[in-house]
Design a protein around this nucleic acid. Structure first.
Length: 323
DNA sequence: AAAAAATTCAACCGCGTGAAT
DNA sequence: CATTCACGCGGTTGAATTTTT
């Protein structure tokens, strides 16, 4: 038969670790290393599962870990990398010395996501909500677009109201909107508004509208870049600010459920080539073609050097190899 | 000052992959 | 070759803490 189980499931302690347990684990690992997690709790005199010990060590006890707040530059790195890699937390954490994937994931979910949403940026696609609205307008013919956009509009009327009334948002004491020219650093330092679930609300509103009138959905529609450009100006939702100096990346590869029109890029001009590279890579990963995808990742400087990435990420920014 | 709500983050869960048997 | 499990990963949970009312 196979291997023996790592521990007796009903004879292990769970929950918070005590300082005594921490000491036992730390001193055992200092002496013997982390070669076999299955044996570590037994040999260290801990009534814990090996998996629990590994987690405690890698996320908390490791001496090389940082425990303080994330710095501005760390936050910027996370956002940059997330715009490219999506929720590949271990990949992102590998670029941040002393930070674990758990740290990065928690910080993203509790802080950074809200900052982005508060600034009118979809934290999943890293595109402004105005682009999402433009996509509604250009994916569908005008009558359907108006219908669906109206449904979506109701979901984030607060943002629309804010922009129409030019009510200032307080970002750490400064009165600023993105239309006033934030750069990436200003952007990430801004205090977020609480709009974390805006995108989900939009999607919900749209799907409700679609369910109500399913015949309005086109069976197929080819992308029309000229329509995309003109419609984004024609639609009233273009009142959403865009960020001067920013260009927006397509959906991060590896993120789930991004084959929908929500994540298809508004692709015009010189940005297309690099966007296509990322999309092709994404497809390869989704098709299970890991070897091809791996080659592409190794050559990822192409994408970093392109002008399509939102966060001016350069290959030199990476301190660890991606593969 | 107390209660309620919101936030944080350590720990757990479940899955995919590859290795051991 | 099939089975079983360790490992690593991303997603989720819930207790503790902080902030707001």
């Amino acid at each position: 038969m196979g291997r023996i189980p790592c521990c007796e499931k009903d004879n292990v302690k769970r929950g918070q670790w005590t300082p005594e347990e921490d000491n036992k684990l730390s001193s055992y690992i200092a002496q013997h290393g982390t070669r076999n997690w299955r044996l570590i709790p037994k040999n260290a005199g801990l009534q814990r599962c090996g998996k629990s010990c590994r987690l405690r060590w890698t996320n908390y006890l490791r001496p090389d870990l940082k425990h303080g707040q994330f710095s501005d530059s760390e936050e910027q790195t996370i956002v940059k990398l997330h715009s490219v890699f999506g929720n590949r937390w271990s990949l992102i954490a590998a670029q941040l010395p002393g930070r674990t994937d758990n740290d990065v994931k928690n910080h993203w979910n509790t802080k950074l996501k809200k900052k982005l949403s508060g600034m009118g940026i979809d934290p999943v696609t890293h595109k402004p909500f105005s682009h999402l609205m433009a996509e509604i307008a250009t994916t569908l013919a005008p009558p359907q677009a108006a219908h669906l956009a109206e449904a979506a509009l109701g979901c984030f009327k607060d943002e629309v109201l804010h922009l129409l009334t030019k009510k200032p948002i307080s970002f750490q004491g400064q009165h600023s909107t993105m239309a006033q020219g934030n750069n990436a650093t200003d952007y990430i330092n801004c205090k977020p508004e609480e709009k974390d679930d805006t995108v989900e609300k939009i999607k919900l509103g749209l799907s409700k509208a679609i369910q109500e009138e399913p015949e309005m959905m086109p069976s197929s529609k080819h992308w029309d870049s000229s329509a995309a450009t003109s419609a984004s100006y024609a639609m009233p939702y273009s009142v959403f600010p865009t960020v001067p100096g920013f260009q927006y990346s397509p959906a991060p590869f590896g993120s789930k459920g991004d084959a929908s029109p929500w994540s298809q890029s508004v692709c015009t001009g010189s940005t297309c080539t690099a966007m296509d590279q990322q999309n092709q890579l994404h497809e390869k990963l989704e098709n299970g073609d890991e070897s091809e995808a791996t080659k592409e990742i190794r050559n990822f400087s192409n994408i970093f050097n392109s002008d399509c990435v939102l966060w001016d990420l350069q290959a030199d920014d990476l301190i660890n190899p991606m593969v």
